[in-house]
Design a binder for these strands. Structure first.
Length: 875
RNA sequence: GGGAGCAUAACGCAGCGGUGAGCGUACCUGCCUUACAAGCAGGGAGUCGUGAGUUCGAAUCUCUCUGCUCCCACCA
């Protein structure tokens, strides 16, 4: 066993350890009927992405869960993979083409896709390599890519299935169009950004005389107006309804109509209606049978319906229209306005609503299922409050536009007969048309929304639609861990897809976490330049320090901050546990124990504390309370184990002939090993390194058994006794400081107690007690006989400690100190007595609370009495 | 416009009906005590955002106000 350990912790061994884990296939999970399965599907990383600290957070959490469960004996599968990210990847490829002076059209679909695959080969693996640096223990043998053959097949099957049920349809509807990316986008991909804009006021001449004024933020859409609407109850305009308007510029005649959608009190109470470019207007148009005039080309420029403005960009057109209205005397005014503009979340270009023939997923039935599993708690969301958001979204969901005018992705499996136009939705191109017998088909040019394939991820990765043994065993998965911003895009879509395709929820629990922000709580972004590269952090501090820092100091549902300071304190903790282990190895000079030695009170105390920690950490992990689980282990190791237990045990270790020495070594090692195991999920590398160093055999910690709480190791009495000793030690250290006793000065301590048990305990732990309190000798007595008047006296539970200070004693100072103590207890007694004299408290508070309060009074009074004795002694 | 959340020590957080109101950093003081100065010991520091209410008892539950944050949303 014993490995040499450097004096200071350094993370340089991480790569070596990770490689060994891989070589030994510790990450690999198999179908194993003798074990229970535990499954997490890693949210597929975007192949265009670079690893950022957000990844580090989410993957650390998942790794913590999977490592804990693996040690608990589950067949724990964490399946990793990547996503083809259609828009992001395609944008990169188009940019690369542009750099060569080419366009998509120049190279053609086939060549474009060749380039795409090449690109994914060259760069798609970068993020995976970076990911490994974090220490993720996912099953790389089962790594998947959303465009693998199997997963692509699953996409086709799912599409065909939904089409067969009538839940996928093709229709001409108003969709969100990104003029920059030249594709449709779904509602979820539209971001609403508040922007400073201008509200333009114009007027239209009414046939038969007069004008009607209105306001708009998008004057260019005037070219597509097919009506002007007012509220039916608006008396100001009642007489105008039914009249027509001769539109300037385009010369079209459009009606004035009445519709409830218009609010009387907003603006002029008049709305121009552009059914082809506004969702509300579209609906008004439906109700009144208005024409839809599309005025835009796909690139956002004006089309032929714009007449003289054809070819202008929409923003340029906006200016020119305004000028034209001014010329014609129909311009009223402009005013600044802040309004929400829908933009594409990828490129932030202002999105334009347009009418287009697209493919949609009908949501009503699918949403019902997703709502139902949440209501019946088959699906739980942590933190709970996100449940409301989940429900709200599903209850207001609209059909999902899934077709994209992109090449990189899953091409829609719809084939149009060139003879009769019949649509066939098939796995592959049909041989002949069942309608007209013609053999000429054309496949739909569009591809599917990236999220359509990601929605199948929890089961397509396990072989669906085949009923594989993996699917049977690992599905439904246990928990999905992801950032809260992705609830709508992905989580909800996985839920209804899982229910519909695989016949069950894709996961039982959803655990959502926040994002990592910079120290000033700003989002990390390229434009701010405040991003932190996790690889750099790992290079200097190690993955363990990064993981620990990200996961502690914050509740899981709130955003966490990135602090270099906190990173250092995490690293310091690693050094602490490193050195505690080194201390053990330096003293561990026996080969083995025949049997567990008899433990002293102090050993039982730390064993009991460690035993409780096991229960605590385990249950916190199960509740996804990762941060406090880590914190509990951290506090135990640093405070209890290092600052107290190791210090207490030193005299026993240094005296080679001490009969309790083996017990100390045994306890030291077994408690350390428990702590290492409990900490392993959080800081896998150091714990493995140390585990190998302190074990008898070469055994990985990764598959070692998770500690289990044991009733036989619960020692409440010992805990209470050692706590009293700690109290005594602190009192002495405190007094020494207050009395200005030089640190190196050893002082005699006399403990006086009428309590036999207390005397016995302190008698048995004399050496330890003396060392901790810097005493030259400790006397234990039942009376204060022989205690001189030059002694400082310290009152603790069941005892008084005397510290003769001889020439150092300053009676005045000591009186001051005693009076301060007295005051403290007095005010406590007062507080408790006041409570007890309250009739309502006695009669209404639970009896145990009242009893506790009474006990406090007598305890404090007891202390007060002894303090008073000391005061008298000095007087 | 709708919804959710947060205000506790200088900073970051925990506590969610009975605690002497904690923890980590930072700060002050003293120590190189043979595991660790990336450390040890000790210390100061908080009318728990405001105002009310419920209760025997409120940092904790309810409402008001104030200030932040996030999500959703088609007011021209």
């Amino acid at each position: 066993m014993k490995r040499e350990m450097e004096k200071t912790y350094s993370p340089h061994m991480e790569a070596e350890i990770y490689q060994r884990w891989i070589d030994n296939k510790y990450f690999h999970a198999e179908v194993d009927e003798s074990k229970k399965p535990y499954t997490i599907m890693m949210p597929p990383a975007n192949i265009t992405g670079q690893l950022h600290v957000g990844h580090a957070l989410t993957f650390s959490i998942q790794d913590i869960l999977i490592r804990a469960k693996r040690m608990q004996g589950y067949s724990a599968l964490w399946l990793p993979g990547t996503d083809h990210a259609s828009i992001s990847t395609e944008v990169k490829l188009v940019d690369a083409l542009a750099a060569e002076g080419l366009t998509k059209a120049d190279v053609g679909r086939e060549k474009f896709l060749e380039r795409a695959w090449k690109w994914r080969e060259d760069f798609g693996g970068i993020i995976v390599r970076q990911l490994k640096r974090i220490g993720v223990s996912c099953d790389w043998d089962r790594e998947r890519f959303t465009m693998d053959d199997g997963l692509s097949q699953a996409v086709l099957e799912a599409f065909i299935h939904l089409y067969g049920k009538g839940w996928i349809y093709r229709g001409e509807k108003l969709i969100n169009w990104c003029p920059k990316c030249k594709t449709t986008i779904s509602d979820a991909e539209v971001e609403h950004e508040d922007m400073e804009g201008i509200l333009y006021y114009f007027k239209y001449p009414i046939d038969g005389g007069g004008f009607i004024s209105f306001a708009t933020t998008r004057p260019e859409t005037i070219l597509g107006d097919t009506a002007v609407a007012v509220n039916p109850k608006d008396e100001r305009y009642a007489a105008l309804v039914g009249k027509t308007i001769a539109m300037p510029i385009v010369g079209r005649r459009i009606p004035i109509i009445a519709d409830n959608y218009v609010e009387k009190d907003f603006g002029t109470g008049v709305v121009k209606i552009t059914p082809a470019h506004d969702p509300n207007d579209f609906e008004v148009g439906e109700r009144h049978g208005l024409a839809r005039i599309n005025i835009l080309n796909d690139d956002g420029s004006m089309n032929s319906n714009a007449g003289i403005f054809e070819g202008l960009d929409r923003l340029e057109c906006r200016k020119r229209i305004t000028e034209e209205f001014k010329k014609q005397g129909l311009f009223i005014k402009t005013e600044p306005i802040t309004h929400a503009v829908g933009t594409h979340d990828r490129c932030h270009e202002a999105m334009e609503p347009m009418i287009k023939l697209q493919w949609f997923v009908k949501m009503d039935e699918l949403a019902k299922g997703a709502i139902d599993v949440y209501k019946t708690e088959k699906l739980k969301i942590f933190p709970e409050r996100y449940g409301k958001i989940y429900m709200h979204w599903l209850e207001n969901i609209r059909d999902w536009c899934i077709s994209r005018q992109l090449w990189w992705g899953h091409r829609i499996p719809a084939y149009y007969c060139q003879g009769c136009g019949r649509i066939s939705v098939e796995l592959k191109m049909p041989d002949s048309c069942p309608e007209c017998g013609c053999a000429s088909f054309k496949q739909d040019e569009d591809s599917l929304d990236t999220w359509f394939s990601s929605a199948l991820w929890p089961f397509s990765t396990l072989g669906w639609p085949q009923r594989t043994k993996e699917l049977e065993y690992f599905y439904p998965t246990d928990v999905l861990v992801t950032g809260n911003e992705i609830l709508f895009f992905w989580v909800i879509r996985m839920v209804f897809s899982g229910l519909e395709m695989a016949g069950d929820v894709p996961f039982h629990d959803v655990m959502l976490h926040g994002i990592v922000r910079d120290a000033d709580f700003r989002k990390m972004s390229k434009s701010l330049g405040n991003g932190v590269d996790p690889i750099e952090v790992i290079n200097t501090y190690g993955a363990d320090a990064l993981r620990l820092m990200l996961v502690t100091g914050n509740a899981l549902d709130s955003d966490t901050r990135f602090y270099w300071e906190r990173l250092e304190s995490s690293r310091n903790f690693l050094n602490k546990i490193w050195n505690a282990s080194r201390f053990l190895l330096m003293n561990f000079d026996i080969d083995s124990f025949d049997e567990a030695p008899d433990l002293t009170v102090i050993d039982r105390w730390i064993v009991s504390k460690a035993n409780f920690l096991i229960k605590d950490v385990t249950s916190r992990i199960d509740a996804y309370d990762i941060g406090s689980a880590a914190q509990a282990a951290y506090d135990f190791v640093w405070d209890e184990f290092c600052d107290w237990y190791i210090e207490m045990v030193k005299p026993r270790l240094y005296a080679k002939d001490d009969p309790t020495r083996p017990a100390a070594l045994w306890t030291l090692r077994s408690v350390l090993i428990s702590a290492l195991k409990l900490l392993h999920p959080f800081i896998p590398f150091v714990t493995e390194w140390i585990f190998l160093a302190v074990q008898d055999k070469e055994e990985t910690i990764m598959t070692s058994a998770w500690p289990i709480w044991d009733k036989a190791l619960d020692f409440p009495e010992e805990e209470s006794e050692v706590d009293r000793m700690k109290e005594a030690v602190r009192a002495i250290r405190n007094a020494r400081r207050e009395m200005n006793v030089p640190p190196a000065k050893r002082v005699k301590i006399i403990l006086v107690s009428a309590d036999e048990k207390a005397r016995e305990f302190f008698g048995g732990t004399k050496k330890t007690f003396a060392m901790l309190s810097g005493a030259s000798e400790v006397l234990i007595q039942s009376s204060k006989e022989g205690v001189g008047e030059d002694a400082v006296s310290l009152v603790i539970r069941d005892a008084v400690l005397y510290m003769p200070l001889e020439e150092l004693i300053d009676a005045r100072k000591e009186m001051e100190r005693l009076n301060k103590e007295r005051k403290r207890f007095e005010s406590e007694v007062e507080r408790a007595q006041k409570k007890l004299s309250n009739e309502g408290f006695i009669s209404k508070a639970p009896p145990e609370i009242v009893a506790e309060e009474r006990a406090k009074v007598s305890r404090y009074k007891d202390m007060l009495k002894r303090i008073d004795e000391q005061i008298q002694r000095l007087e």
